[in-house]
Design a protein around this nucleic acid. Sequence first.
DNA 1: TACTACGTTTAGTAATTACTAAACACACAT
DNA 2: ATGTGTGTTTAGTAATTACTAAACGTAGTA
Lengths: 174, 174
Amino acid sequence: MSQSLTTIKKDFTEGLSQISRFWGFPKGMGAIFGVLYLSSTPLSLDEIVEETGLTKGAISTEIRALARMGLVHRSSKLGDRKDYYEAEPDFYAAIRSILKERQNSEFDRAVRSVKNTLEALENNWVENEEWNFVYERVQALQDFFDALDSLTKAVVRLESLGVTNVTKILSILK
Amino acid sequence: MSQSLTTIKKDFTEGLSQISRFWGFPKGMGAIFGVLYLSSTPLSLDEIVEETGLTKGAISTEIRALARMGLVHRSSKLGDRKDYYEAEPDFYAAIRSILKERQNSEFDRAVRSVKNTLEALENNWVENEEWNFVYERVQALQDFFDALDSLTKAVVRLESLGVTNVTKILSILK
DNA sequence: TACTACGTTTAGTAATTACTAAACACACAT
DNA sequence: ATGTGTGTTTAGTAATTACTAAACGTAGTA
């Protein structure tokens, strides 16, 4: 019972789809990335349509999201109107890129609201037990976010998640 | 223009809701946690209904998810039939708990499928360029997951994300 | 035993999100 | 200019997810 490369590829992209969904991205995104990741040559939109079964429209929008995150790169051949896409093979580079992307927009705004709460508390201060309690809690959350923030920034600065770095980190966290 | 504590609290939980949604959890979950986090005493289901505007049913199911993740704890008072809930104040403890939870189930299964792909490739090996390429790529992804896995395991083992640990890590990642 | 006060489950609904199909806009070739 | 091959946008649909309302189960109380 020997499996063909195409079925193996299909299973793989299937798996990536689920991982994608798990992290809150559309599953089609995972599939698109999977197809590109296993292709040794850049693919055109239509080729991706072929491989994934999605429509041009969907792929167009989702691949732009992927490009924004740095997970795929767009290129074009001379004398060919089509765009071509290929996957970023360095996952660590991709993660850094995603973190950078997330730094702005949605998450940042939400985190900022914690800071606002803190300021609102200070500006309307009433000295009693509850205010103290609430202030302490919000402050703790703020501290946590700050720690997280400096960590991700460090991660972004880091060149690669090579074996050496990982083992270094692991040795410290012992 | 002085803001009351209740409106400040409301803004805060609003922010937590958005953070919750950002990480792929229902926004109600963030709201529930927010209410508990800012309460100095454990709250009953009905009190949470009161504060969030959600129904008992929704809160019942979502609070169990929160409890599974270790973000809230359930307790009960003697001679009182009600259950009471309070937020875990140590965020780092919560994160470790979430990581533990995620280790199993969905994500693990998906990651496992990458390993399966690898094995399928080995068991049906055909020596040509494409197989080599695909194998290399899948192997790279596997390595990445392995690195990630040992990191999260280290994080889970770590007691706290205190200032000392963070600075230690940061110094290494220089 | 039946009643009460609670949490849970369930069946249905609302809201959101992912996707399709088709119109559109643009660049290039003729 | 006109036509052709692209990627993009849009309007609508399918699928999924979050939530509600109400039935249900259960443990304690009389």
